[in-house]
Nucleic acid binder design. Structure first.
Length: 113
DNA sequence: CACATGACTGACT
DNA sequence: AAGTCAGCCATGT
């Protein structure tokens, strides 16, 4: 298990491009990769994020509802929310406040980059 | 090679 | 409005 991380690597790189204090969704990343339907692969890639290095800021990646779906996969279920709050992002009921305002579209932002 | 799983999303009931 | 089903594609067994 070393190569074959092509898809994972794509997701990891995109996530690492997320500006601090911003968030994005799995669907956005999937779309950026060219497969808006492969949102599952994005989540799957995040599952492997703990094996990637440097560590991927998965706490910025949420589902389309802005919910901290993957918080349970962190070191601690509350770590994700805590990190977001430290970034100045308000989190209530496992959901990011002003999600659409903090939303960072990789396809759009990276395209303009 | 075939089946089962997964941090999602959209549509249907 | 809330719950259920299917589609999507890569990884692991």
């Amino acid at each position: 298990m070393k190569k074959t991380e092509s898809f994972f690597d794509l997701v990891f790189q995109v996530v690492r491009q997320i500006p601090e204090g911003r968030v994005t969704s799995y669907g956005a990343i999937a779309s950026c990769l060219g497969s808006p339907q492969s949102s599952r692969m994005v989540g799957w890639a995040m599952n492997a994020s703990h094996t990637a290095f440097p560590p991927v800021p998965a706490h910025w990646v949420l589902n389309r509802n802005g919910l901290l779906t993957g918080k349970m996969h962190f070191s601690s279920p509350d770590a994700m929310q805590d990190l977001l709050e430290k970034e100045g992002i308000e989190v209530k009921n496992d959901a990011v406040i002003r999600f659409k305002e903090l939303f960072w579209d990789p396809q759009k932002e990276l395209s303009l980059e």
